[in-house]
Design a protein around this nucleic acid. Structure first.
Lengths: 343, 343
DNA sequence: ATCATTATTTAACGCGCGTAAAGTTTTTTG
DNA sequence: CAAAAAACTTTACGCGCGTTAAATAATGAT
């Protein structure tokens, strides 16, 4: 490995004994040059450690190999997990993923999208804030950049949506809970920012109705992304005031459930399906920590891998189709029920 | 807002009635042009929505306004939280943070650093994998890019290190536990990848020794980033085999403790400092979920804000100093003890 | 060995912006 | 109000690479 510094492709091409256009071709697609040529370049590459200037490469390209991944709040382990999975897929597919978190902030989400436009990405995976999103800004963004929405569906935004079949989530948990004990009440935030929460409530109401059971929706107050604390405080209030209509609680999502379980523990209420248990608690999402709550949480799991795969495949088709689909594609992936100790 | 599309700065300058160099100057520093000129540009900016091409801007710059943030594993909420805090600081300071996770993988960490070099960032915050890092790759990287290490200290790497004063963490927890009950044993992974773990063990041994108490270190097997599961399995084994020498357990970090508490719950062992409690458990990090464990976790907290501030300030000085410090700076920030229910 | 095919070289232009020098206009200052 | 200072315009070059067209060389098949 010589430590001679190479300034540009011209110089590197000279050192490999080739012309710049050939080397340029190699970097664009190594298979596009003759095997012997490829070998010479790769040999030189080992000796001199040259990398083409990304900025110069991209400035004339209408699209790059960049892929944006935007999530509403990365410190939420659910989004960290899904982002991680998608990111890996992008790398395997030869793209350069760039990860952004809106940190729950509308202005920041808009700024991220504006900055992302300037990066001319080949495509973007966007999990929008939801209710808090600036719809105008997102619409503008989607006009400029091929976008696959995930997690939160915003009507007619982006070329495709990949998300969860919320009905399937709730159906499985409700069915299980009803089969094994009292029908559940539904525990959620009063003003959820995420549209999935609304779909889950509606599914709950519909399923209970279809089963001829009376639904009970319990709404707790709270704003922001501290769901566990909202769930904990809400649970304390609801339990203390005796507003819990049954011994079975279905939380809208695992983070609320984590808070709910925490409150139960603090009140000395035993949760689970065995004897001596005061409550059963179940939920949705299979949050990475739901295995470690006390008791461990019965939940409807996202198929993280399947979601990530579908996202990637959708973006591939989208890029091949030139960034536009004739009709907006919607994919809803069903849940997988995970039985643990809490219900 | 006209929807006429502007191709380049030349065109935009013409529409604002100015010359391109002036407009260029404006984008480099809005305060560097006369107020009336600035107003004209900003007015045009509202009408035409022009943004200079990032790639063209950066290709001649030796450094950009980009700042890299590299963490070993972003799906670990501790890193998500610290990354989130640093990211915000970068944005406030007018930089463009770019966040990367090595996903616990040496090869990926190296690739991220190589890619980052090509981005010519003004500086990089790097929390390395630790023992698993490719030291050669990191050293090469630090030669090219002004780097502030954080979280994990690698000897002599980077221009500065900002991290936790592990001694202070352990001192506070041990002192508290000794004062209020039996001296703790120390619960950790056998082969921790993160150097902080080693420093915490050493601090534990030293502090116990100084207090004339006999130390007990319990090592559990496990590889990878699933610390909770490692802690849970380890706790089951240790408790089942009666290897626990005291009723007080100090875990190396909160994620292990979360697993430990989960095992205790599964075994019907009550944890806490009250009567009827079989064990006390404390830990370090103030993981975002340590508030919601059952019982809530007594822990030594990182000063997330202080760490992020110090990181930013260090990088500022580093950039001003031209990317090199005369001597490597090390900052260790002490812990803040948080008393909760588990000990 | 010959011709057709495919790969590479040479030469040249363009991308969008940074930047420097020299000249002109505007603003500030005494 | 004149002179000095500051801001702006004009002109021009460079950055590193993409890309194209025409010329040349290497390869492969007959």
């Amino acid at each position: 490995m010589s430590d001679q510094k190479i300034r540009n492709m011209e110089e590197f091409a000279a050192l490999s004994g080739l012309s710049r256009p050939t080397v340029s071709k190699y970097f664009h697609d190594p298979a596009s040059v003759r095997a012997t040529t490829r070998a010479r370049i790769e040999e030189a590459l080992e000796r001199y450690e040259f990398r083409p200037n990304i900025y110069a490469m991209n400035q004339n390209r209408s699209l790059t190999k960049n892929v944006g991944i935007v999530v509403p709040y990365l410190a939420d382990p659910f989004f960290a997990e899904i982002a991680r999975t998608i990111e890996r897929r992008c790398i395997e597919a030869g793209f350069s993923p760039i990860l952004y978190s809106a940190h729950g902030d509308q202005k920041l989400e808009t700024e991220i999208l504006e900055g992302l436009t300037a990066l001319k990405p080949a495509g973007v995976f966007l999990a929008p804030l939801g209710r808090l999103s600036d719809r105008g800004a997102i619409e503008r963004f989607c006009r400029d950049v091929p976008t696959v929405l995930f997690d939160s569906n915003l009507e007619d935004m982006g070329e495709a949506f990949v998300g969860s079949d919320n009905y399937s989530f709730v159906q499985q948990t409700v069915e299980y809970l009803c089969r094994t004990g009292a029908p559940p009440c539904f525990f959620e935030m009063r003003n959820p920012a995420n549209p999935n929460a609304n779909k889950r409530r509606k599914a709950y109401l519909q399923i209970m109705d279809a089963a001829g059971l009376e639904p009970h929706v319990i709404k707790v107050d709270g704003e922001g992304w501290g769901f566990e604390e909202i769930g904990r405080r809400g649970a304390h209030e609801v339990i203390a005031s005796g507003r819990l209509p049954t011994d079975t609680v279905l939380c809208s999502n695992d983070r609320l459930a984590i808070g709910f379980l925490s409150a139960c523990y603090e009140r000395g209420l035993r949760v689970g399906r065995g004897e001596g248990c005061a409550l059963r608690v179940a939920s949705h999402d299979d949050h990475p920590f739901s295995r470690f709550t006390c008791p461990s949480l019965t939940t409807a799991a996202h198929e993280y891998e399947a979601v990530a795969d579908k996202c990637m495949n959708t973006l591939f088709s989208l890029i091949e189709a030139g960034g536009r689909f004739a009709a907006r594609e919607e994919t809803l992936i069903p849940a997988r029920l995970i039985l643990r100790a809490s219900a």
